Simulated assay, not measured.
Amino acid sequence: MENLVRPVIVIGGSVLLTLAVGWVTDRLLRKADARDHDSPLWELLRRGRIPYQLVLCAALLRGSYDQAKVLERHQVGIGRALTLVLIGSAAWLVIRIAAAIVETTYSRYARVHRDAARVRRVRTQVELIMRVVSAIVIVVAVASMLLTFPAMRAAGASLLASAGIIAAIAGVAAQSTLSNMFAGLQIAFGDMVRIGDTVVVDGEWGTVEEITLTFLTVRTWDERRITMPVSYFTSKPFENWSRGTPQMTGTVFWQLDHSAPVEAMREKLRDILRECPAWDGRAYGLVVTDSTPNTMEVRALVTAKDADDIWTVRVAVREQMITWLVAEHPYALPRVNHSDAVLPPQRRPSPDGTSLRKEYELPRSGRS
């Protein structure tokens, strides 16, 4: 009877105590979150209640399993399994706590600072830091799990002795991966590109959506995703339209007839921009920038607060100006000048419609 009651008390008591402590902790975090709505810390910490309960339960079972006297022949294996669960859940809990602290710090920073560029820069750095911290915690947890096996501890000395050779071989084999990792850190702390920046890479215009230690994702205007190694941004030139200030200047070109009313077009451009919400009101202008024998090139200059708005302004100006020219000044549209073809002199037609002989003929041989 004792052999049955003892394991029930030990295992059941550990599980019940874990559930009770978890419930009390969750209630306390709920009350703290209700008192402090401005801080997301308590809500983020509540997301770690599962690894927290796993750590608590595994620790209680690992400490009291020897007293249960259950499956004594497999006691070593069960104890090692509980140790592995304890290490894994502890690593999971550490990552959740670190994420909660980092996210809370970023939220407070974003509320205080109104500069969108600085907020995006900090967001990029925070995400990369969290990835580094997660990678370090996972590596340490896996190493700790491996060291629980006696065979791995015995091999530790030989592994340390050959660490230099292994590091050299790994460095050569993973040269591209390591270069991308260092490039990711350089991007994060060098403020070269941030999440949310508008960039042009390989002729594609888009917004930076994700930055990791090894790759970067750009979301294009047509919802495609371009994934490229972060080393691209440290080795090749690219356009960053959000660098410094997001304000932009755009141009619109028309090919028109030389008789186009340029002054009236300036007034129409002003009216179009006044009715366009995307125009920021900083500047506008319309000038003739080039001329050919048949047409002249007219350029309109407009401004907007960011890349999305400058696209909206440009298409609105282009469309409404062409519509106005068609309706009010159709003569200003480009024309193709043509005329009837003139035949060569030796092939001029006669008045009756028959062709005349060539005006110039060579003398016939033998004619006197």
Rank of each mutant, 00 (worst) to 15 (best):
V315N: 14
F253K: 06
E127D: 07
V193G: 00
T198H: 11
S291V: 14
W279E: 00
P237Q: 02
T303F: 07
E297Q: 10
G22V: 07
L128M: 09
G184E: 00
L45H: 02
I165N: 08
T249Q: 14
A183K: 01
V24H: 13
T217C: 07
W324T: 03
I129F: 15
I166W: 13
I97P: 01
L160V: 01
A316Y: 11
G244C: 01
R6C: 09
V142M: 09
P51K: 01
A100W: 10
E127K: 11
D290M: 08
R123S: 03
P237L: 02
E361M: 08
R219Y: 04
N240V: 01
L362D: 15
P246K: 04
S242P: 06
V112F: 15
D197C: 13
D352W: 10
W279H: 03
V119Y: 13
L28H: 06
E319P: 00
A327I: 07
L178I: 12
M181F: 12
M152A: 11
V315S: 15
W254D: 00
R364F: 11
V137P: 08
R6M: 15
M192P: 01
G164K: 08
A163D: 09
L17K: 04
A98Y: 07
K236S: 04
T217S: 14
G156C: 05
I322R: 09
T323I: 05
W254F: 14
P40W: 00
P246S: 07
W241Y: 06
M296W: 04
Q346A: 14
E43I: 03
Y360C: 11
A188S: 07
Y106D: 01
R364N: 13
L86E: 03
L356A: 12
G353D: 13
R80T: 13
Q247P: 06
E209R: 14
E2W: 06
P229A: 04
V10S: 03
I165Y: 10
P345K: 11
